[in-house]
Nucleic acid binder design. Structure first.
Lengths: 235, 235
DNA sequence: AGTCTGCTTTAGGGTAGCCTAAATGTCAAG
DNA sequence: CTTGACATTTAGGCTACCCTAAAGCAGACT
């Protein structure tokens, strides 16, 4: 059988991601894959046919793609690698939250089983990455995203950020500048009417934020297991 | 100009390594490159012609290859990446000395400039990798291998291992089992005549070793700056 | 000089993964 | 039920890198 190349891993990961957008496991349109991988649609068709030949996806012309069990296993392995590296980069090297994804994108393909084990252990066998996304176990079990959307938090209640979506890099970058990162303490001070901005206290600072943006942030009233943030040693 | 792909980086690194075998900067035969990359000779000829087109090597038919300044710069960058990763893997993740090379071989191609900076800093801007090989600076300056060949050590003199060659994986593996790794204390107890085995004390243990093998180890009588060996956190 | 041996190069192919242009299927609106 | 808009697939090509087989060159030995 053909080899699992970097490209194959990328395709499987994207298919996995896109099939989880709604509640249910969806068939993923070829065009969406193309858009996310920044590749032409014909390239996707070709690769997807190859993946089917390898038994990694089910695919019917004009009807989208779905991961097979085998394909999902590989996808989750890559996601695990990705999130372990993200956590390492953030907590051990001090890479800012809005840049870990880009770096992990390349490191995820380079992690042997032995190393994965050692990396996980060195990080304390973590369950969540620095954005608060769950890290699949080696067996392929996924935890959940903790917390509730920030806009639904009760007024004047202290909470801790548990998750920041990394889907849109530009928005993540902005949220980071506001200090809305996992572990931060937040209080919702005011909710303007007609879907207007929310006024927050984040740590010691105050800010106003659009509820759509705030929806990318999840918070929990109980103090959660906060991701470790050992700063890297400086010289 | 064509891109610096992983393959290009591999070729440049091997050419750099092979041109440093003797004292002087040598022209490297195509066949040697082929053997070290485990690739056919025609493949090397083709790639080397391409590298010349990119201005990274000088090359004349039937007369071997030499790095240009531009080529050497890239080669040293890769060597720097490789050795930084080796040090990280060994000291932070606890990867055994005889396995770091293999892992670093793939990681070396995946390290952005920003990350390189952060990784180096997190490791304390080290000058030598865990085998005792010097790590080139970002500017391309190379330190030296410290110490003298173990067989030339005076009898009954305490010394510290400063370098273990990683050229031959199988021999390195054996040296590691003997405890002959950088930082180890060694005393040469006896030298058998006619090029016979050396009797050593390594730490608390005693062992006999062929002088050819021992020549892969370098030692220094002064206590050198020993590579840090923070063990990884266990669960 | 001739010739043999062993590198090295040329010739000719193959695979993986990407592309554009053109053909084809789907779906919804008229 | 036809047609137009749009998604998708087929067709045909390109680049990077690798291979084997055959030709070509160089240095040693006679």
């Amino acid at each position: 059988m053909a080899a699992v190349t970097h490209a194959v891993e990328d395709y499987l990961k994207v298919i996995w991601k896109l099939s989880h957008r709604g509640r249910e496991d969806e068939r993923v349109p070829v065009g969406d894959i193309a858009a996310h991988l920044r590749v032409s649609a014909p390239s996707v068709t070709g690769m997807v046919q190859k993946l089917q030949g390898m038994g990694l996806v089910q695919y019917a012309r004009y009807d989208g793609v779905r991961l097979s069990a085998k394909g999902r296993k590989i996808a989750l392995e890559i996601v695990r690698h990705h999130r372990l590296w993200e956590l390492y980069l953030h907590t051990r090297l001090g890479v800012p939250l809005d840049r870990v994804d880009l770096e992990a994108e390349r490191l995820e393909h380079v992690l042997s089983d032995d190393m994965e084990e050692l990396l996980s252990r060195a990080l304390g066998d973590p369950t969540h990455d620095p954005h608060g996304d769950p890290i699949p176990t080696k067996a392929g079990a996924m935890g959940t995203v903790r917390g509730d959307p920030l806009p639904s938090l009760a007024l004047d209640t202290s909470a801790v950020v548990t998750h920041v979506s990394d889907r849109q890099a530009d928005k993540l970058r902005y949220l980071v500048t506001l200090g809305l990162v996992p572990g931060a303490r937040v209080v919702l001070l005011h909710r303007a009417p007609f879907g207007g901005p929310l006024t927050l206290r984040v740590g010691r600072k105050r800010c106003a934020i659009d509820p759509d943006l705030a929806a990318l942030v999840r918070v929990s009233e109980e103090a959660p297991a906060k991701p470790r943030r050992t700063p890297p040693r400086s010289r």
